[in-house]
Every structure is written in C-alpha cells, then in structure tokens.
C-alpha cells in the first residue's frame, strides 16, 4: 500500500532531503512496498516459539567511572567538517530573528 504524499514530503523534510515533485509518486509506492515487505513478519506464527531473541532492552547497562581519557586531535576533527573557520566548524546561519 502506497504511503501518503504528505508523509513523503514530511520524511524528506526531516531528513533534509530535497525531492522533486515528479518523484513523489514513485517514492510513495516504494516506501509502501518496503513497509509491506516488513509486514510479512506479522504472518509468522510464533506462539510455539520459546524465547529465541532477547530484547536489547533487558538486563542492565554497564556504567563507566568518571575518569578522563583521550580525545581526538582538533586537526582530525576539523578535517572531518565540510567547512572550517579558524578553530571552529563553520555552518550556514541557523538563527534568524524576525526583524521588527
């Protein structure tokens, strides 16, 4: 079942992906197909199956002592960024105040 056009646009927006109006129908069909494919899992009868897979959300987490360790060199970090200014990562402006 194809998913709705609005949902396709919403997902694209959240992922910061620009999509072309012409592709929307194709995406909505493809996304629907993916969901249908996964949906097949619900058809499997698991009533007779004993625990074969434990959720990662069982048990408890390991805690770390608060002791400092090594960090990455700044050079390395900055080389990963698309744009750099001085010792900072540079990105397009994120805040625009509405002018009065």
């Amino acid at each position: 079942m194809a998913i709705e056009r609005d949902t396709v646009f919403h997902i694209a927006k959240l992922a910061h992906i620009e999509i072309d109006e012409r592709d929307v129908e194709k995406f909505s069909r493809q996304m629907g197909e993916i969901l249908d494919y996964i949906e097949q899992l619900n058809e499997v009868d698991i009533s007779e199956v004993s625990e074969s897979l434990r959720s990662i959300h069982e048990g408890s987490v390991f805690l770390r002592e608060d002791e400092p360790g090594a960090s990455l060199e700044r050079e390395t970090v900055l080389s990963l960024a698309p744009e750099v200014e001085d010792i900072f990562v540079k990105v397009p402006p994120v805040i625009k105040e509405e002018s009065k």
Binding site: V77, E85, D86, F88, V89, K90, V91, P92, P93, V94, I95
Partner: peptide
C-alpha cells in the same frame, strides 16, 4: 555551542 555571527554560525563541539 553555537556562536551566531550574521551570515554564519561557528561551532565548538
């Protein structure tokens, strides 16, 4: 931490 400077934003991670 983001520092907003007009036409750009600088970031310290």
């Amino acid at each position: 931490k983001s520092m907003h400077k007009g036409n750009k934003t600088l970031i310290d991670f």
